[in-house]
Design a protein around this nucleic acid. Sequence first.
DNA 1: TAAAGGATAATA
DNA 2: ATTATCCTTTAT
Length: 186
Amino acid sequence: MKRYKKLPRSFYARDTAQVAQDLLGKHLVHVVDGVERHARIVEAEAYIGAHDLASHSSKGITPRTAIMYGPPGFAYVYLIYGMHHCMNVVTEQEGHGAAVLLRALEPIANVDGNTKGPGLLCRAMAIDKRMNGHDLLSEDFFIAEPETKESFSIVASPRIGVAYAADWAEAHLRFHIEGNPFISRK
DNA sequence: TAAAGGATAATA
DNA sequence: ATTATCCTTTAT
């Protein structure tokens, strides 16, 4: 078992769009039955709070979204369209209701199957709603700094699947690593 | 392009 | 209790 440089709580307690960009290139690690699943984040979207109509938190605090209003650095996992899971990371201070949705990963170790898209990514990483509310500073599920520093360009674009969000549908709150082959869409 | 599928939240 | 809605994927 290697040592990882986990991102500190303070990393998440910042501007959501900033966190989304900074998460690109970071490594997501999930340990299941002693198997360390390891992947690089290549695409993410920001959901910046109750005023963002595309965010679940725009409907206020409900049993489902309560975790988004909690302290930063926790996982928010929910079931979408009855068949797939999506994983978010809670950002900013408690009570803000913001999170970053992980949309695509690049497999590094012990990851099978497609990771191009939020539903597939969760399946490949064995993430399901049991992980909802899990602390990302825990031992078996966390995000870490890459071992080697790398440089890449970040591209901003409108978010996916949020056409119902009126004015917010066009906001450039989706970020991905330019030229990476594991992006869910172009 | 449209159906699928389950949970959630609003309505009653 | 019933219904509309959904940050997607897969199959027609």
